[in-house]
């Protein structure tokens, strides 16, 4: 899946997602696990990976104590019409003060990226190669919005 970050296509993304059945490598640096597994590892006192993936029905508040040690948080949108990820992203960025990469994964399409950015997401694992000219137009179309605390991206 093509990865877009700060409006650039990123080649060679080092991160790997491990589903709950997969054994974790000894190389912990670029592993992403589900929030459920992450919290289980935490409660077991195990070493924690740097990346976590939040599903729509996860309680994102449970990740709050670990925010400062995480290097990648993925917000999953299994279908683009499921808007729970927007609230998760808003909380992670605004409430928990997360400063690292916040990545939308799943059914990610150009016309929705602007709202995702305004909710705090800054990287997008798109379903297909995004049209950057179109994307720039979509992101910069509205010069004024009605929700100042959800600022327009400066990245466009």
């Amino acid at each position: 899946m093509p990865l877009l970050r700060n409006n650039e296509i990123i080649e060679n993304d080092p991160w790997t997602f491990f589903d709950d059945e997969q054994e974790l490598h000894s190389d912990w640096d670029y592993a992403i696990v589900t929030a459920a597994r992450f919290l289980q590892l935490a409660s077991d006192g195990e070493q924690l990976p740097d990346g976590v993936r939040v599903a729509p029905d996860d309680d994102v508040h449970l990740l709050k104590p670990y925010i400062s040690q995480l290097k990648l948080i993925c917000i999953s949108f299994p279908v683009y019409t499921d808007g729970r990820g927007y609230s998760h992203a808003r909380l992670v960025r605004q409430r928990f003060g997360y400063k690292g990469e916040l990545r939308a994964v799943g059914d990610i399409r150009e016309d929705h990226i602007s709202f995702m950015q305004r909710s705090g997401i800054n990287a997008f694992d798109c379903i297909s190669m995004p049209d950057l000219t179109l994307l720039k137009q979509l992101i910069t179309r509205f010069e004024h919005t009605y929700q100042p605390s959800y600022p327009l991206s400066k990245l466009g």
Binding site: D82, G83, F115, R118, F142, T145, Y146, Q147, Y150
Partner: peptide, 13 residues
Amino acid sequence: RQWSTLHPEFNWL
């Protein structure tokens, strides 16, 4: 009206 218009968090309820 203004607050709810194209609210980025609540467009996919």
